[in-house]
Amino acid sequence: MKNENIITQLSIFINNEPGRLAAVAGILKEFNIDVKGFNLAESTEFGILRAIVDDPDRAYDIIRSQGVIVKKTDVIGIAIRDSPGSFFEAADVLGKAGMNIDYGYAYSNKDFDFLFVRVDDAEKAAEVLKDAGIKLIEKSEI
């Protein structure tokens, strides 16, 4: 059975040139790709748009077909209550399990506040966090 807690994120690589980000945004709009949450990371060479979208497989094929470099990355969504302590609790659980968070970014919808995080082994991280009683978001809840 597929793990409902493993969320597929698209990592879209964009050169730091004027108009490149706008061009990618144009593709998302043109093909009605619904972006639920995103984060933009930048180096001096290029940027990475990390996006949680509706139907990531379809979006991946479309973006790729437009000549844009895109990768699928597994992330997990950790529910955070109104206190910032809940994130540290999750980080502590992962740390004790020897798992490192590569990056994370926050997202909210009408029901939840949560944090998407990228770890090396998403399956294992999801298991460890659930065992510790931490609520993870499921695909259907995004």
């Binding site: 690589f13 180096s43 990390r50 470099i69 990768k71 590569d102 990056y103 990228r118």
Partner: peptide
Amino acid sequence: NESSIADDMVKLG
């Protein structure tokens, strides 16, 4: 290489 691009700035660094 396209297959080797990491989506993590720390790894790229």
